[in-house]
C-alpha cells in the first residue's frame, strides 16, 4: 500500500539546510495498524505530511496504492487526498461554523455528492461513532473525545485506503484516548490501513507495528511483542 524508497527531505531556512529525512525505506502493507514514534525533531511529522501528500520530498520515491507520488499538480494531489487518504489531527481541525454532520460530509462535497445524499451517509458514520444524537451540534458544543470521533468519521466517509492520524490522542484524557484507539482498531478490522504518529508509549503499544524514528531514519521497529532491529 505504501512504499518508500531512499526518501530524503530537507528544509531550507535562510542559509541553513535542515536535513530531516535521510534516506528512509519503509513499506506498509494494506490493513496494517502502524504507529510511528520518535522524539520531536526525529522527522515523524514530516514523514506523515509526505505520506499525506501535504508536503513534497526531495529524493527517493513514494508509491501510494501502486502510484508514484511525485510532481503532482495541486489538483491531482487534492484528488488523491480526497479518494485514498483520511486525516485525523491532534487539534481535530473541524470547521467551526459547520455542525457535526456537515463536517463529516465535507469530503463528499468535494466529490460532488448531493447535499441530501452526503448528509445521510455522514449521519450513518456518526451513528457508527455513537454520535447520532449530536449530529446537529456545532464543534464548540462537543467534548474533545466527541470532536475527535467526528473527525474520524470525516476521515472515513470517503472510504480511504489509508487513514493518517497525527497525535490523535494528544489533546484527550487517557480514558478517551483508549476509546479512540479502540475505535481505530475497529476501523482497521475493515481493512483500512492506519498510520498513527504519536509520542506516547501506551498509545503505540496498542498498534501492531511500532516504527521508531530517530534523526531522519528508522532506528528500529518492533512487531507486536517481537523486537526487530534494522
Amino acid at each position: 500500500m505504501i512504499e518508500l524508497k531512499r526518501l530524503h527531505k530537507s528544509y531550507i531556512t535562510g542559509n541553513n539546510k535542515l536535513h530531516v529525512l535521510k534516506g528512509l525505506d519503509l513499506t506498509i502493507e494494506q490493513g496494517e495498524l502502524v504507529s510511528i514514534m520518535g522524539s520531536s525533531g526525529s522527522g515523524k511529522s514530516t514523514l506523515l505530511n509526505i505520506l499525506g501528500i501535504l508536503d513534497s520530498y526531495d529524493q527517493g520515491s513514494y508509491k501510494l496504492n501502486g502510484t508514484l507520488m511525485s510532481n503532482l499538480t495541486e489538483k491531482k494531489a487534492a484528488h488523491y487526498r480526497n479518494n485514498l487518504l483520511g486525516f485525523v489531527f491532534q487539534s481535530f481541525n473541524l470547521i467551526s461554523f459547520k455542525n457535526a454532520v456537515e463536517n463529516v460530509a465535507l469530503p463528499l462535497y468535494y466529490q460532488g455528492v448531493s447535499r441530501k445524499k452526503r448528509n445521510k451517509i455522514a449521519l450513518d458514520y456518526l451513528d457508527k461513532m455513537g454520535l447520532k444524537d449530536w449530529a446537529e451540534h456545532m464543534p464548540s458544543e462537543l467534548s474533545g473525545g466527541q470532536k475527535q470521533r467526528v473527525a474520524i468519521a470525516r476521515a472515513m466517509i470517503s472510504k480511504p485506503k489509508v487513514i493518517l492520524a497525527d497525535e490523535p490522542t494528544g489533546a484527550l484524557d487517557s480514558a478517551t484516548s483508549i476509546e479512540v484507539m479502540e475505535l481505530f482498531r475497529e476501523i482497521n478490522k475493515d481493512g483500512i490501513t492506519m498510520i498513527i504518529v504519536t509520542h506516547e508509549q501506551d498509545i503505540s503499544e496498542k498498534t501492531d507495528r511500532i516504527i521508531h524514528l530517530k534523526d531522519g531514519i528508522i532506528e528500529f521497529e518492533h512487531n507486536t511483542k517481537k523486537l526487530v532491529y534494522v
Partner: peptide
Amino acid sequence: TKEIGIQRAIGATPAN
C-alpha cells in the same frame, strides 16, 4: 488560512 488548509487536506482542489 488554517481552515483552507483543512479543506485542502480533505480533498478541496485549488479551483474549489
